[in-house]
Write a protein that binds this DNA or RNA. Structure first.
Lengths: 245, 245
DNA sequence: TCGTGATGGTTTGTATACATTCCTTATTCT
DNA sequence: AGAATAAGGAATGTATACAAACCATCACGA
């Protein structure tokens, strides 16, 4: 487990924060999002318990919750680890999010009150500014805030909850597969365009804006050759069959 | 907790089944689906533990998993209960499922191998037969099998997992809001029509078949007047504001 | 009669002990 | 040298004990 993170959390605890499994879930989730806990990191129950000052019971609950949220891999008799989704799953996650967020955006078009819209505008502007200053962590925070707000304002709360989950998962894989050469996964104008469509009540436009945005994002990632399809069975099929006998 | 269910489970345990939290999840889920555990049923940890012959640790894990699956309501310091989704949430769940299953069906059109298709045909036929015989529990089982198979064959596994969840949730609310006058929520020909479109590679047709099927199902439910909207704030708004001061 | 407050039983929250599994390392044999 | 194996440490699985919260009931008073 990353040491810098451990120290950070210990400091927060000393500061008198009160802890429960939900807090742990929130903290781990955030740490994963901000890459302080890279995929594959081991999360032993006792260590987490010591860090947060609680017993394994609480940690176990938090870990099962995180597993349900697809943040952590929890396999029987093995240490929980931060999940590292495959390239394949990454593509599928993006596709699912395009579908769901597109629908949510379409439902939301023309339905948002002026106050929410202005808050969204402010967040988009804050994102642009953070990007201009090269403050990538802050930019990510702002960007997430926008999408999270869309999810929580979704008229369909079931879809909204699904979107919350998908936003989290895409953020994780973006952090995981970001091209190292790129300083930022920022697509200028995407968010303002989306907000304009929402304000104008242009449902089709809002959906399109979301789809374009997510396609653009996905293309910024290093997902290797389209479908490497390391199909071992196709390659070693014959041999495998023989050995099987 | 329903007594018939308790006895049934106890019998299964005596029969030498081995138990873990996953087994409990599966059993409770199934019992909810088949209405042996109606919404609102209390699920105290100790009782469940005694029934399944395990301690509260295991039961607690199972309950948190069930809560993540939206099957159970788990609130702090209160006994877990079988969830009873509102009318509002029911509509939203159906809308979400139309979106997701429609997409999965479209993706699946023309992609299924002959064997899977014939299995699906057989299941649809078994469903029709169960309905003809008036065996509703069996019919439900068959119907679920079809949709579950679509979910697990989804080329996009993320969407597939989401669909699995939504199929479960719609089944629960169907059981909850079924018009008492109806013996069955069966729409003749819907499944065969869907399978035909899948076989023909007709993506648009498959999506339409799903959407029609789910709309038909939703209309069989007793969801009350469109949006009763018991908006207390709208009614008592002034008074509430005064009292607030 | 109705509201209010106390009280005992029930249920969950948390910590901890012990059993089991797993993984690593060191050792031995070929 | 390399592979198989055995032992030790590390981590999870499960059960249980105790504390805290909740709920229903009953008694009391206006």
């Amino acid at each position: 487990m990353s040491n810098s993170w451990k120290e950070e959390v210990e400091a927060a605890i000393r500061a008198g924060e009160r802890i429960s499994d939900r807090h742990i879930v929130e903290r781990v989730r955030h740490a994963v999002l901000t890459q302080r806990l890279p995929p594959g990191t081991r999360l032993p129950e006792v260590s987490l318990g010591e860090i947060f000052g609680v017993s394994r019971s609480v940690v176990r609950r938090a870990l099962t919750r995180l597993a349900a949220d697809h943040v952590v891999d929890q396999r029987p008799n093995q240490v929980s680890r931060v999940r590292a989704p495959s390239v394949e799953e990454t593509r599928e996650t993006f596709a699912a999010r395009r579908l769901v967020e597109g629908e949510v955006a379409a439902l939301l078009a023309g339905q948002l009150d002026a106050e929410t819209l202005s808050v969204l505008d402010a967040e988009a502007e804050a994102e642009a500014e953070a990007h201009a200053r090269g403050n990538e962590p802050l930019r990510i925070e702002r960007s997430l805030a926008i999408h999270h707000r869309l999810a929580e304002r979704s008229p369909n709360r079931v879809l909204g909850a699904m979107l919350t989950d998908l936003v989290l998962r895409t953020s994780i894989v973006i952090a995981l597969y970001k091209r190292p050469s790129l300083a930022s996964c920022y697509l200028e104008g995407d968010h303002p365009r989306l907000l304009a469509a929402l304000r104008d009540g242009d449902a089709a436009g809002a959906r399109r804006a979301i789809e374009r945005h997510l396609e653009g994002l996905e293309e910024l990632l290093d997902l290797g050759p389209r479908e490497a399809e390391t199909d071992l069975r196709a390659i070693f099929g014959q041999a495998a069959l023989l050995e099987g006998q």
